[in-house]
Design a binder for these strands. Structure first.
Length: 428
RNA sequence: GGAGGCGUCGCCUAGUCCGGUCUAUGGCGCCGCACUGCUAAUGCGGUUUGGGCUUUACCGUCCAUCGAGGGUUCAAAUCCCUCCGCCUCCGCCA
């Protein structure tokens, strides 16, 4: 959530942000009026309550008729206090409900527009010219099947569409990727964390995933728990309701978890292979830092993502997303998109968001320094989303016979092997 | 799944049975000041968090906050209910 003080002082800035997101601008005035009512009814409650407390102190000392009349007066006051309290709570709830619907303030440098209006910041590496090499590249599923690495048929048989098995070198490849990613993160000072993958509504809502994207989230009604779509959720909620001494910041965590996504509304998109699936594993970077540090930290997260993709020797581009494509929490977001040869385009592999104080306010996470306590800033960034990384690796590093070259950085985690080769007898 | 115990403002803790200056006790830690060759010790003061008002600083003041939410009452840390968390035991189980 945003700072109510900012809303009162500079409502135009909030209106402009809502407009850039393509969201409801009217929320701003509704919230201003609810906040005004919350404050005025709160003041009335405070005054009545102060009077009630004073009166209450007199009662035990009073005797006889005096006591009777005091009790009668106190009874009236008690009713008035209760009414004022109810009124205040209603106004507060209304204000809170509206506040939770406001998106984060869009960063001034974020391009304005929708999904199509992203800006390409840079391109790193060069896509291979398969025509010049004299062969037509196989797509990742064909390669995965040749290698005995990916089995989507049985995934569909057992769990439905968009599920898969990773087998043999596929399974080993995932473990190597995860280990290599954790190794990079650890070297950079991150604390590795294995997180709970089922979380309570407060964690989900606090992270900003129960708004427009709620349909994309798996929910277990019997237990009132959500399956996380990313370890960002349990990592953000890790310090929920805490006050962290500023001297301990930044706190950098590298989470590893499965990610569950319903992919509602993506029917027919990326149906082949494992590019878009209901469940995948991911190494995620998550940082708690001082608000003044957030922008610099965002650049660092992006740099770590670039380092990772470069170490995998993948050609990729960095884009900055437009205001309408940020999601509720982010003020600014960069994606790294790897080249997918058989699609002839760059596709998202990682994403890093500066959520400023937005999540921290919802999750009640503050920092304490000489100035006092205030919400800190949180940021997140993908290090390795396993399935999409496998897609990019297989397709970009394939050889004419269907084997796949292993980039140097992964070899130590694959028993030193530098080549994945087709199995003599596929798993079918 | 069953039975029981516990949850107090950083940590420990008094208070809860029997509702009323609890405006929450004391210790430790921490901050400030004083004293002191230095350090230590000692003394005094301060030290939960949030909201409102005061000009959105300072100062001041009021209200809320004893795991969370509701209820009873003129009045709730204290009585009742629901929930959450932790611990112990029994059962089941990877």
């Amino acid at each position: 959530m945003i700072d109510l003080r900012l809303l009162r002082e500079d409502p135009d800035r909030v209106r402009a942000s809502q407009r850039a997101r393509g969201e409801d601008v009217g929320l701003v005035d509704a919230l201003l009026s609810a906040d005004e009512r919350r404050r005025s009814s709160g003041t009335r409650f405070d005054e009545l309550r102060a009077e009630q407390k004073q009166l209450g102190r007199l009662i035990p000392k009073a005797q006889g008729e005096e006591k009777t009349s005091l009790l009668a007066r106190a009874k009236e006051l008690a009713d008035a206090v209760k009414a004022a309290d109810t009124e205040q709570q209603q106004a507060a709830e209304e204000a809170q409900e509206l506040l939770l619907r406001l998106g984060n303030i869009v960063h001034p440098d974020a391009p304005v527009g929708g999904e199509e209006d992203f800006v390409v910041l840079e391109q790193i590496g060069t896509p291979r010219d398969f025509a010049a090499e004299g062969f037509t590249p196989r797509d990742h599923l064909e390669l995965g099947e040749l290698l005995g690495a990916i089995d989507t048929d049985r995934g569909a048989k057992v769990s439905g569409s968009r599920f898969y098995y990773l087998t043999g070198v596929g399974a080993l490849l995932e473990l190597a990727l995860v280990n290599a990613a954790i190794a990079q993160a650890t070297a950079a000072g991150f604390t590795p964390v294995l997180t709970p993958n089922l979380v309570r509504p407060a964690a989900m809502a606090g992270t900003g995933y129960l708004g427009q994207v709620e349909d994309d989230v798996y929910y277990l009604e019997k237990d009132d728990l959500y399956l996380v779509g990313t370890s960002e959720v349990p990592l953000a909620a890790y310090h929920m309701d805490e006050i962290i001494d500023a001297s301990r910041l930044p706190l950098r965590y590298a989470g590893f978890s499965a990610c569950y996504r319903r992919e509602a509304g993506s029917y027919g998109k990326d149906t082949r292979g494992i590019f878009r699936v209901h469940q995948f594993d991911k190494v995620e970077m998550f940082v708690y830092t001082a608000p003044e540090e957030a922008e610099a930290e965002h650049q660092r997260l992006l740099a770590w993502e670039k380092q990772w993709l470069s170490s995998l020797e993948l050609p990729f581009q960095v884009i900055e997303l437009a205001s309408g494509d940020l999601g509720a929490s982010a003020s600014r977001k960069f994606d790294c998109e790897a080249w997918v040869p058989t699609q002839g385009k760059y596709r998202e592999l990682t994403s890093t968001s500066n959520t400023t104080q937005f999540q921290a306010r919802r999750l009640n996470i503050r920092q304490r320094d000489e100035q006092g306590t205030r919400p800190l800033a949180t940021l997140n960034g993908t290090l390795c989303a396993v399935t999409r990384t496998i897609v990019a690796l297989l397709e970009n590093h394939q050889l004419p016979d269907g084997s796949v070259r292993v980039p140097e950085v992964l070899r130590p985690f694959l028993g030193g092997r530098d080549l994945l080769e087709p199995t003599a007898a596929p798993a079918k």
